[in-house]
Amino acid sequence: MIQYPFLQKGATIGVTAPSSGVNSALHNMFKQSCESMERKGYTVVCGETVWTQEKAKSSSANKRANEFMEMMQDENINIIIPPWGGELLIEILEEIDFEKINKKWVLGYSDTSVLLLAITLKIGIATAHGTNFVDVRGEYSDHTTAMWQSVLSTEVGDSITQYSSEKYQAKWQHNNPSPCVFHLTEDTNWKTISNGNVSITGRLLGGCIDVIRHLIGTPFGNVQEFRKKHCNNDPFIWYFENCELTTTDLRRSLVQMKLAGWFENCSGILFGRSAANHPVNEYTAEDVYTELANELQIPIIYDVDCGHRPPQITFINGAFAEVEVEGGKGVITQHFK
C-alpha cells in the first residue's frame, strides 16, 4: 500500500538543494520565501547547499545526498521543499539510502520530480509534485498554488478536490515583481484529444518528462515492481510536463516509456502547458498527443495546470485520482488510500 505523510500546522520546513542552489545574486529573493513562510506560521531551516551554485549544481552529489538524508532523518523537520529544480539531481540517487528515508512530504517540480518519482517507486511513500519554495515568496499565493497546504494536510483515508485555474502565466517577468509572484494573464483551457468531455481514474505518477525519462531501465524506475508491491494492480494516470524538449524529442521519450512498459494498464495521460514543444518540420505537440492516444487507446488531456507555466495543481504520486474535464475546465479529486 501507499504510505502518505501528513503536514501539520506550524510545521518545520527543511530547504535543501538536491539539484540547483541559489547563487548569491538571488539570495535576497530566496530570503523573501523564508520570511513569507514564517509569516504563515512555519519554521524554516535551510541547509548549506541552498546558498551555493557552481557548474550546474549546488554542490557535489555526495554533499547533496547527505544533506537531504540528514533532513529526512531529522525528527524536527516535517517537510522538505527544495528552492527549485535544476539540471543534475539524478547524480544523487545512487548516494541515497532509500530504506532509511522517513515518511515526510517532499514537494517541488522540474528536476526535483526525479527524486519524487524515485522515492514513490522505490519505497511506496507518496510525494508531492507542486510549487517550488521560491514561488511562495509573494504577499499571497493564487488559489491553485495555495492548495498545496490543504492537499498535504489530507488525512489517510480522506480525499481532496482541486480545480483548474482561471488564468495562467505565459511568461516569467522577474524584473516586474507581483504581489503573488506570478503574472496570471492567459485564460486556462484544459483540452482533450477527443475534443469532448473526459473522465478517468487511476493512481497518479509523473513529473518533468525531460528528466524522469532517465529513470527508465534503472533501479529507480521500476514501474512494474511498484504496481505489484504497492498498488494492487490499479491502473495508472501519468502526468507529464515538458520543460525544454522539441516535439520529436518528446515523441522519442514517450515511445521509450511505452517500450519500457510504463504505459501498461494506463487509463489516461495528462500533459502540462509548455513553452517548449517546438514543432519540428511541422510536427506539433498535438500530433504527438494524438498519435499516443491512438496507439494506447486512452484519453489524453493537455494544457493542464502543471509545469513551467504556473500555477501548479498539487499532484500526489501514488494517490488514487479521479480526473474530469468538461468544457475546458478540469477537476481532480485525489484519494489517500
Rank of each mutant, 00 (worst) to 15 (best):
G108T: 02
S164M: 02
S110G: 06
T112I: 12
G157M: 07
L107G: 02
W105V: 14
V114L: 00
T161D: 04
I101A: 10
G157A: 06
Y163P: 05
G157W: 02
W148N: 00
T154H: 04
Y168S: 10
E155T: 15
A118K: 08
S113D: 06
V106S: 05
G157S: 06
E139A: 14
Y168P: 14
D158I: 08
I101P: 03
T144S: 03
W105S: 13
T154E: 02
W105R: 14
G130F: 02
K104R: 15
H129M: 10
L121K: 01
A128S: 09
S165C: 01
D111S: 05
D97H: 06
T127A: 00
Q149I: 11
I160F: 08
A128I: 04
S141E: 09
K103A: 14
Y168R: 13
G108P: 01
H143K: 14
T131Y: 05
S153F: 10
T120G: 11
Y109T: 15
I123H: 05
T127L: 02
E155A: 15
I101T: 07
A118N: 05
S153E: 11
T127Y: 01
S141T: 09
M147C: 00
N132I: 00
V151M: 00
F98Y: 07
E99I: 12
D97M: 05
H143R: 15
G138D: 04
K100H: 06
D97Q: 14
T144M: 05
W105Q: 13
Q149N: 11
Y168F: 15
I119S: 03
W148I: 02
T161F: 04
I123D: 08
N132P: 09
V136I: 13
W105P: 14
L107Q: 08
I101W: 05
E99W: 10
A128P: 08
L152V: 14
Y168G: 09
L117Q: 06
V134I: 15
G130N: 06
L121T: 01
F133T: 08
S164T: 08
A118G: 10
L121E: 01
D158K: 12
S153W: 12
Q149V: 12
E166N: 12
G130E: 05
N102L: 11
V136Q: 10
V156I: 15
D158E: 11
S110T: 04
A126F: 06
S153M: 06
N102T: 15
D135R: 07
D97P: 04
F98H: 13
V134W: 08
L121V: 01
T127V: 08
Q162F: 00
Y109E: 14
H143V: 11
A126K: 13
G108W: 01
H143L: 13
I160V: 14
V156F: 15
V151I: 01
K103L: 15
S110H: 04
V156A: 15
V106F: 00
A118I: 11
D111F: 03
V136H: 03
D158P: 07
N102C: 14
N132G: 10
S150Q: 10
A118Y: 04
Y168D: 10
W148R: 00
G130H: 02
K122F: 04
Y109C: 15
I125T: 12
I119M: 00
K122I: 12
A146Y: 01
H129E: 12
M147I: 06
W148A: 06
I160K: 11
Y168E: 09
S110V: 06
L152G: 09
D111A: 01
S165P: 04
L107R: 03
S141P: 09
S165G: 04
L117R: 07
V151W: 07
F133P: 02
R137N: 13
